[in-house]
């Protein structure tokens, strides 16, 4: 694991954040050595000795203006570097050729000025729902017109590689924070708001994370994993998931009908 930098390697935005971090780290190290060095030197060199007399200096306007301007210039440079990197961190690229057929333009459903989509406007949109103490992932492909019957998963999100995945992060109770270190930064799930981020994974594997905002006693165990698999495998998984959910819904329908007969129609709430 990284010692001096944030984790990266899963998705381009995480890589770009780590590279921006490294640039700041190099500048910071130089400043750190210079300032701590000056402090240490002043303390050592000018320690009280017999016969030493302190210089009675009250200031030096040119020097003071100089270091004020120097500090400001360094920060302007940092701001410029950040702005130069910003687009690579925030704006997703198009999906690769193998993932292209998986993405739709159904981002329209969640249209928002804040949601960043790739240049062709197509991404695999997954809704991430935070709740005490579990993450739920809702995939596109609702079976019914009202949005019900969409495939979903808990805790582990399965995604295709080489595909731009756009996340719509929401919460159903308290504030949570979505964070997979190797796939980019944290984004809070605030009830009543939508928050967005994205990632695009090239290497299959499991990327681990967990809720990063205190959400109650189970906060430490609110795990979030992302499992990246090749697109074909993803399609198979999603189809199987749809079958399972359809089966479960059908069974629930039968159970509801049975229950309705037993206790009288109209007494059973529709989900």
């Amino acid at each position: 694991m990284a010692f001096f930098t944030p984790q990266s390697g899963g998705s381009p935005n995480a890589d770009e954040i780590a590279s921006l971090y490294r640039i700041i780290l190099y500048i910071a190290l130089v400043i750190f050595v210079l300032v701590e060095g000056a402090l240490g030197y002043a303390l050592w060199k000018f320690r009280a000795r017999k016969g030493a007399v302190a210089a009675q200096i009250r200031g030096n306007t040119r020097l003071e203006v100089g270091w004020t301007v120097a500090a400001a210039v360094i920060l302007v440079v940092l701001a410029v570097i950040t702005f130069a990197k910003l687009s690579a961190i925030q704006d997703p690229s198009n999906s690769g050729p193998n993932g292209q057929h998986l993405v739709g333009s159904d981002g329209v459903l969640y249209a928002s000025a804040e949601r960043k989509l790739p240049p062709n406007g197509k991404a695999l949109n997954i809704t991430v729902v935070g709740r005490q103490y579990l993450w739920q992932y809702v995939y596109p492909g609702a079976a019914e017109a009202d949005g019900l019957g969409a495939p979903y998963a808990y805790e582990q999100m399965v995604v295709p590689t080489e595909t731009t995945v756009s996340l719509d992060i929401v919460s159903s109770d308290v504030v949570h924070s979505w964070w997979i270190p190797e796939l980019g930064g944290k984004f809070q799930a605030v009830p009543g708001y939508h928050n967005y981020t994205w990632f695009k994974i090239s290497k299959p594997g499991v990327y681990r994370g967990q809720c990063a905002n205190l959400c109650g006693r189970g906060h430490a165990r609110m795990i979030a994993d992302v499992k990246a698999v090749p697109p074909a495998q993803f399609e198979a998984w999603l189809a199987y998931q749809k079958v399972l959910i359809a089966e479960a819904n059908a069974q629930a329908k039968i159970a509801r009908a049975k229950l309705g007969k037993q206790i009288g129609a109209g007494q059973v709430e529709n989900p």
Binding site: A14, I17, A18, Y21, S177, G185, F187, A212
Partner: peptide
């Protein structure tokens, strides 16, 4: 953007 990795 760096804070997104470091905060919390």
């Amino acid at each position: 953007p760096v804070d997104w990795q470091l905060n919390e």
